[in-house]
Design a protein around this nucleic acid. Structure first.
Length: 592
RNA sequence: GGGCUCGUAGCUCAACUGGAUAGAGCACGGGACUUCGGAUCCCGGGGUUGUGGGUUCGAAUCCCACCGAGCCCGCCA
């Protein structure tokens, strides 16, 4: 069954064709504003010039056009200024919600036989994941699900584990120096948290050394380089890269601890990947590509042995690709990683979900790939998102001023659990069920909080707000869903057909209007790689349902036809909430 | 110095991407059949959309300048 929006778009197309107007004229089809009657609106303004008539006149002509051939679907058309407000007929809407309830997916999108690879999360293995990673994880996941939902056939979610480099050496060095062989088991701690402690330890001691050297008259830059701890960390990195078995052994063990910790966090967040790459495995290919570029004369080598590329002709700077000691840098491994992926997937699009601070990095990466003549140079897209701030300022792992992902989830869980024990609806659940529910609410709260903001805008994380389960929140949507489930279960006579007469009230029309645009919202959110569009929509739909619920009896309704129509409508909304929330990765409990 | 992003109610965010009288949540004040689930609903105050120009039927949205905030331009990742 065609969606209302599709029908109106079709009307516009036919109208333009009959009047011999170029398709290129964009006539907006939009949701009717709340203060007017109708569900779908056509704005006629862009046609004023070609028609040489006033928008009002054109709107009237469109009205007649529709009335003359869509009489069965349309109840009423109102012209207000240049706007044509269309109210669909009650019978159309009834059929609409019935087919929605009967189908498992609404709307269905045409399949796109594309392969999209989306990389997200990409943690360093020197510390546990914090709030910033949570934003990345849920944004990446939701974006991948949106792509899939709107028809992309192959969406491949990949994680690139940053398991080598100077930062790992720092944690490793601290553990070697001060760890006394402690393990996660002995410490009674997740491995990622344990290693994170050593990272902070390193930074503390390192800072002391730098200050001492500066007191002796050294410049900051020199002190940072000459500090013994930094020297030792670099030495460790060199030994690692040269394959020193002793270093590799420790490295493997520590990495393993951290990755196990990550697994738990991912599992909790409901996030999984189709493939995991490790930079320790991709950087070598990167180095080969650097050699290739050097041979082709695209890169150049300085006297100290370091390798560079000159990007000043495309408005960027000179960029280092290999250090003078021969070890690789961040971008080296990225060159290798994307080459591997290309060989593996021949993807049509490669999305990197990476924080905005790396925008320059991706510009450079693309510029290098172009110079190397790689066919995938134009297929990369950096989905950049802004940082999460605390009221006290930036989060800094080095200083330990971060909100830890696991800790936050625990706190949310605990709070939800307390609320569950207070509520008469859930107090009788078993302990296991209570914790299961508390976890869903915790996830709903934090994910919604992260997803409701436009990715390119910073999130100011205020804990009281994130811990709030009322108003514009995930639990609000969850609660609405649970209400509808309860309604449906209570209904003795589940409506079997939609073949009857019923006149929808204004609350119901408001809901139908929103539902009609669900498909547009999905497409919009996908096109912009912006799940917040969907998050906002779900809240709006839930809000509207609660308003409806407070004003119109459903199961209590004595007229059986009205009851049937209202149950169908409620059920249809439940399905959209379900579809949207599962696309975002937000769990919806049946009871809460 | 150069590049990118963002400035909307006291606070946190929306605004169908150029459309109608700029809307929600939080906070504050008042209220809701002794509940089809009160984690809900209703009412209220609160705005020169950072400032100044421009583009046009129409600008929070596009262009220019300025002001303010953030990020980047590392032999860190």
């Amino acid at each position: 069954m065609e969606t209302p929006v599709a029908i109106v778009k079709d009307i516009v197309r036919k109208f333009l064709a009959e009047n011999n107007i170029q398709e290129s004229v964009n006539v907006p089809v939009q949701m009717t504003r709340d203060e007017f009657e109708g569900e779908v609106t056509i704005a006629s303004f862009p046609l004023a010039k070609t028609f040489k008539k006033s928008p009002q006149e054109i709107a009237s002509i469109i009205k007649e056009f529709i009335e003359s051939r869509y009489a069965d679907k349309v109840k009423h058309i109102e012209v207000k200024g240049g706007f044509v407000n269309i109210s669909f007929s009650d019978s159309y809407w009834l059929e609409f919600i019935k087919t929605l309830v009967d189908s498992d997916k609404y709307p269905v999108f045409q399949k796109k036989s594309e392969t999209v690879v989306i990389e997200f999360s990409s943690p360093n293995t020197n510390k546990p994941q914090h709030l910033g990673h949570v934003r990345n994880n849920v944004l990446g996941w939701a974006t991948a699900m949106l792509l899939k939902r709107t028809g992309t056939e192959k969406v491949i979610k990949v994680n690139l584990i940053n398991d080598r480099g100077i930062h790992i050496s720092k944690s490793m060095l601290a553990w070697l120096k001060w760890g006394n062989g402690i393990t996660p088991e002995k410490a009674g701690k997740k491995g990622d948290h344990l290693i994170g402690d050593f990272y902070v330890m390193f930074e503390k001691e390192y800072k002391k050394q730098v200050e001492e050297l500066m007191n002796k008259g050294m410049s900051k830059e020199e002190a940072m380089e000459k500090a013994p701890l930094m020297q030792e960390a670099r030495e460790l990195l060199r030994r690692w890269e040269s394959g020193d078995p002793e270093v590799l052994k420790v490295w493997r063990m520590l990495n393993d601890w951290v990755l196990k910790g990550f697994d738990e966090t991912y599992k909790r967040l409901g996030i999984e990947f189709d493939h995991i790459d490790y930079e320790s495995e991709t950087y070598k290919l990167g180095k080969e590509i650097v050699r290739e570029g050097l041979e082709k004369g695209i890169f150049y080598q300085k006297e100290d042995g370091s390798v560079w590329i000159d990007l000043t002709d495309v408005g960027l700077d000179h960029k280092l690709l290999l250090r003078s000691d021969g070890t690789s840098v961040y971008i080296t491994q990225d060159l290798g990683t994307i080459e591997l992926r290309w060989n593996r997937y021949k993807m049509d699009l490669m999305i990197y979900v990476v924080a905005e601070e790396q925008e320059y990095h991706f510009k450079v990466l693309q510029a290098i790939l172009k110079k190397l003549g790689r066919p995938y140079a134009d297929k990369i897209y950096h989905l950049s998102y802004a940082m999460v701030d605390l009221p006290t300022g930036k989060m800094k792992s080095r200083e330990g001023t971060v909100i830890d992902a696991d800790d936050l989830l625990d706190e949310l869980h605990q709070l939800a659990y307390e609320k569950i024990n207070e509520s008469p609806k859930t107090a009788s659940l078993s302990e296991e069920e209570k914790h299961d529910l508390a976890e869903k609410i915790a996830l709903g709260a934090i994910k919604f909080y992260m997803l409701r903001v436009d990715p390119k805008k910073r999130i100011l994380f205020r804990k009281e707000e994130a811990l709030d389960f009322e108003g514009y929140t995930g639990p609000f949507v969850q609660y609405t869903h649970a209400r509808i489930v309860s309604l449906w279960e209570k209904a003795q006579d589940k409506p079997a057909s939609a073949d009857f007469n019923y006149e929808f009230n204004r609350f119901e029309r408001q809901l139908l209007k929103l539902m009609a645009f669900y498909g547009e919202v999905l497409q919009e959110a996908t096109r912009k790689y912006d799940p917040s569009a969907l998050t906002n929509f779900l809240y709006r739909l839930a809000k509207e349902f609660n308003r409806y619920y407070a004003n119109t009896p459903i199961v209590k309704e004595t007229d059986s036809l009205a009851r049937s129509a209202r149950l169908l409508l409620s059920r249809a909304i439940q399905q959209i909430l379900n579809d949207g929330a599962s696309t975002l990765g937000i769990p919806l409990p049946d009871k809460m």
